[in-house]
């Protein structure tokens, strides 16, 4: 892990303007921005910790907490809202028994909501681990979550 952070920072040290790109790469490789990662980035780029923390906190693309194995992203943009994002969110909250932005106790699912993912023609959209699931209904969402759970139980789930 420490190695990967070094690789990310390679050639970008002391370049404060690279902050967001570096954070994006760390987020991608580690799944979240740990306190240690933020301290290292701050030191390497010469940006105060407060600034790094502020940026990491501002953008929803960055998370400061470790995330679950599967990340479910529910879009609640205008188009998705109009075409029924709320029942989907309620369905997911009930099924996983977590709040928005939280991770289930077993570390399997993280539920996130975003304001728009830019595929309004496919509304309402649910993204599971980066895969877009268009024209969602509560029933299909339930089936999707159950499928992932079943795969996990059988040990066939892909990380």
């Amino acid at each position: 892990m420490a190695n990967s952070l070094d690789t990310i920072l390679e050639g970008r040290r002391s370049q404060p303007h690279q902050l967001i790109e570096v954070l994006q790469d760390v987020q991608h490789d580690h799944g979240y921005l740990s306190r240690e990662a933020i301290d290292t980035v701050s030191e390497s780029l010469g940006v105060p910790v407060m600034e790094v923390y502020r940026v990491a906190n501002f953008y929803t693309a960055f998370t400061l907490e470790p995330r679950g194995k599967h990340v479910i992203t529910l879009c609640k943009g205008t188009a998705c809202h109009v075409r029924g994002a709320n029942p989907l969110i309620e369905q997911a909250l009930g099924l996983l028994d977590v709040g928005e932005g939280e991770t289930t106790e077993n570390g399997l699912f993280t539920l996130e909501t975003v304001n728009c993912i830019g595929t309004c023609a496919l509304a309402p959209v649910v993204v599971l681990n980066g895969v877009y699931h268009p024209l969602m209904t509560p029933a299909r969402l339930r089936a999707l979550i159950n499928r992932v759970r079943r795969e996990e139980e059988e040990g066939t789930g892909h990380a």
């Binding site: 105060p48 407060m50 906190n57 501002f58």
Partner: peptide
């Protein structure tokens, strides 16, 4: 000092 800053949006 950069000890405090705005957080959240």
């Amino acid at each position: 000092a950069h000890a405090i800053g705005f957080v959240g949006r």
